[in-house]
Amino acid sequence: MFRYANPTRFMALTSVLLPWTIALTVVSFAAGLYGGLFTAPPDYQQGETVRIMFVHVPAAWMAMAAYSFMALASLVAIVWKHPLADVAAKSAAPIGACFTFLALVTGSLWGKPMWGAWWVWDARLTSMLILFFLYLGYIAIWQTIEEPIRAGRIAAILAMVGFINIPIIKFSVEWWNSLHQSASIIKVGGPSIHISILWPLLVMITAYTLLFAVLLMLSMRSEVLKRRIRSIRIAKVEGFG
């Protein structure tokens, strides 16, 4: 894994990987959309709105996965002082925040016909909202602290603190929710999910994961270039000064 530690190797590797990943992403999105919109049958309880699941569940999954990725990259950055891990964690945050936002909005759009309200303080939606706040705090750290090394350290500590807290927050929100209401909360999925719904969902999850990989590579490449530009500028100033 550390063979790709070197930014030069990373740039070479991603320039080969990127076109293939993009192609795979497009193909799996096409297959997933076809399956989700045309072949999957409407649900007997929820009717056609069940189709929102094919964009909602993958977004929620990626929201969690991107945060876990960010926390893992932060751990690597702190423990092994790996320069690319820092870049990876920083790049993953805005992408993860976008997925979280989409999970919230599609959840709300799904909730309106199901619950009769745009927002319900359901345990899942609420913990997703808190996750969104955690992303905002993390992004704010990078934007506030100017020196990259210090910002990287501080952001990495915050990402790990947040990661430890996610299960606690989820537990407390579920507790709180069961205390206050147990109204018409629909149960999505479960073991009895039919294969005609399951395969488009899995394909969509794959598509979202691939898209995350593509966006992460794009963003990491820009960040590597930015740091390269910064170091050339500093060398230039020192050389003439």
């Binding site: 705090g137 750290i141 500590i157 927050i169 507790w175």
Partner: peptide, 27 residues
Amino acid sequence: ALTVGIRRGGLLLSLIVLPLYVPILVF
């Protein structure tokens, strides 16, 4: 500790800390 010595640290501090306060408030 994360925000010490940062300009406008107070606002950043609330953004970071308040989500982590949710479980304590709930219980």
